[in-house]
């Protein structure tokens, strides 16, 4: 069972996915200096009406196993401790403990 922070992150991911195209269109209008300022301003106001969980910056990669937000190894989507546990258990292909 994922913890509440992971659930919130999933919510943000779904929100970003659902609103991305519309947000991009408004961004294009708002940042385009060829367009009249009034139009750009209206587009910016529309951008501001989007919810918090539609912005891509609210999405954070969390540990898929424990939900930890720090120390994530992005190649595996796991935090450093879960990575160690799984690697030692041989559950991550191609990873083995170094010894020399």
């Amino acid at each position: 069972m994922p913890n509440v922070r992971v659930l919130r992150d999933i919510k943000a991911r779904n929100g970003v996915n659902a609103n991305e195209i519309l947000r991009r269109a408004y961004l294009y209008v708002a940042r385009n200096q060829n367009l009249p300022p009034q139009v750009r301003y209206q587009a910016q106001l529309q951008l501001n009406t989007f919810g918090k969980y539609t912005r891509p910056t609210t999405v954070k990669n969390r540990c898929a196993e424990s939900g930890r937000g720090r120390g994530i190894m992005s190649e595996f989507g796991l935090c450093r401790y879960q990575f160690r546990l799984k690697a030692l258990a041989g559950e991550i292909p191609g990873v083995k403990k170094a010894s020399w």
Binding site: D9, R13, R24, Y28, A30, R31, Q33, N61, A64
Partner: peptide
């Protein structure tokens, strides 16, 4: 002049974002 083209040119990030958690 800034045309905002980079917002149209960039790939959509949503589809890969949704697939992060198994």
């Amino acid at each position: 002049i800034r045309t905002g083209a980079k917002y149209l040119r960039a790939r959509l990030r949503g589809p890969s974002m949704v697939e992060y958690y198994p």
